[in-house]
Write a protein that binds this DNA or RNA. Structure first.
Lengths: 166, 166
DNA sequence: CATTATTAAGTCGTGCACGATTTATTATCT
DNA sequence: AGATAATAAATCGTGCACGACTTAATAATG
């Protein structure tokens, strides 16, 4: 893997001499910087809810499908279980979720929203609307962005695609 | 700030009923997931160099402009000084950079590449090429992506734009 | 059926990332 | 000039994120 490099240099570097050498010309840097700025923009919106952005996005997954296993969440959020476990414990301590071991397979742990966790959902549309507004980009541009990023994510992470169907 | 929300809901939610409610339909989630996957894709490429991705990207800035101050780096990388200081100390301990206090203004700290830090630059094109190859996206798509993300970053982080000119 | 392999979470250590605060230096204002 | 404000890094505490490893439970194999 990652060894189509030679031919790439042949084909691309010849036509575009020094295309991506500067930091801010690189797409990786662009994604990196964007994720920081997004994180910082979320903070004041989520602070009143007592949530961090990773916690919020985890809840978002559960609002879509309650009772997911840790592994499911891990695949959807592109996070390792070692990241997720303590995060989920914090969400549990906050009273928003409940973790239950599987009945037939005791290795698995399933995550369920509590009443309080479900209640937070009402705040979500407002948060999302604020974020979209703050980008000052039109919906079409954002949809293209999401499309490209999803392809990038699926190709780069050579495990399962981010979404099975749809 | 963030209070154009009401009118947004009027204009957008009416035309696109439930546009961004699911986790993976949201651009924030897309950026978030992409940054994780990118980070993980870089790891094996940077491991031989003994660098983490944030360290690598910091060096990239210095390859472009040596002798930047911590503040300059902070603005370019969209990182706080509290993040940057320990990162720079690690890079210094690795022998790739040198930190010197300003002569006329002793508050500022300037960062200079050492011989070893400059030498690492030779490996950069290979790393970049591998990453671009791994995305399996064509250059045009990546350029559009960078363009959109830069606008997003500039609009969302309401301080200075990511790049002065160009 | 017992052994081995695989899987699912969790633990641990390192590094990133932030906000709030601190310290030290420079700028500003009577 | 001397008090006050502003600025630049650094420090501290919390939480995220990973890889490497461990533990426990299920699956596969002889």
């Amino acid at each position: 893997m990652y060894n189509h490099m030679q031919q790439w240099k042949m084909t691309m570097t010849s036509t575009h001499p020094d295309l991506p050498i500067k930091a801010d010309d690189m797409f990786c840097f662009a994604v990196y910087a964007a994720s920081h700025v997004i994180n910082r923009a979320y903070a004041p919106l989520l602070k009143p809810l007592g949530l961090t952005y990773p916690q919020y996005i985890t809840l978002t997954c559960l609002w879509e499908t309650d009772g997911l296993g840790v592994g499911d969440l891990s695949r959807r959020l592109k996070m390792e279980s070692s990241t997720l476990t303590p995060l989920l414990k914090r969400l549990e301590r906050l009273g928003h979720i409940e973790r239950r071991r599987g009945r037939d397979d005791e290795r698995q742990v399933f995550v369920f929203l509590t009443r309080s966790g479900k209640a937070l959902r009402k705040k979500a549309p407002e948060v999302t609307a604020c974020m979209i507004e703050a980008t000052r980009l039109d919906i079409g541009t954002l949809q293209d962005l999401v499309g490209t990023l999803r392809r990038l994510t699926d190709n780069l992470g050579n495990d399962q695609p981010s979404t099975a169907s749809r």
